[in-house]
Amino acid sequence: MTMPGSAAWEPTAAQAIIDQLKSKPGALLPILHAIQDRFSYIPEEAVALIASALKLTRAEVHGVISFYHHFRTHQPGRHVVEICRAEACQAQGARALEAHAKAALGVDYHQTTADRTVTLEPVYCLGNCACGPSVRVGDDIHARVDAQAFDELVESLKTERVEVR
C-alpha cells in the first residue's frame, strides 16, 4: 500500500486540491486537511496558494494552522506515532509508556528519529479508553500497549518495506 501523505511537493496537484474545495463554505480546514493528507505536512508554498485562493493573508492562514495541533508545517518521519496522554490511558500506565517511548526512540514529542522512521506526537484520547494505553499509527489504533508491545510496533515500522516512488 502506498503510504498516504508521502507525496513530494507538486504545485499543480496542490492547486487542483485547492480549486476543488475552495468554494465550499468554510473551506480552509478541508483544504488544509487535504493538503496535509497528500503531502504529509503543509509546505510554505501551499500556504501562499491557499491564501491567494481564499483571499486571505498568509498570516491569517498561518494563524489557523498554528491553532490546531493536527496540522504541521514540517515534513514528519515516515510514520507518525501518536501516544495517548489522556486520563483514562494514564490510569492504565500511559505515563510509563510515554517515558519508555521517548527513551527508546531517543526523541521527545514533536521530534523525529535520526533515521526518519518515526515522528512522536502526543494525542489526547483516541476513544479507545477501556483498553489503553492507546497508540495510533496512521489509521490504526493499538490497544493495551506496554513497553514491549511498543518496541515490537516500532520494529515493524522500521522493517516495513519502503515505498520507492
Binding site: 486520563e87 483514562a88 490511558c89 489526547y124 484520547c125 476513544g127 479508553c129 477501556a130
Partner: peptide, 11 residues
C-alpha cells in the same frame, strides 16, 4: 468532537 478522555459513546 468527543474530546473527553474516557468517552467513546459518540464514536
Amino acid at each position: 468532537d468527543e474530546g473527553d478522555s474516557g468517552t467513546f459513546a459518540d464514536r
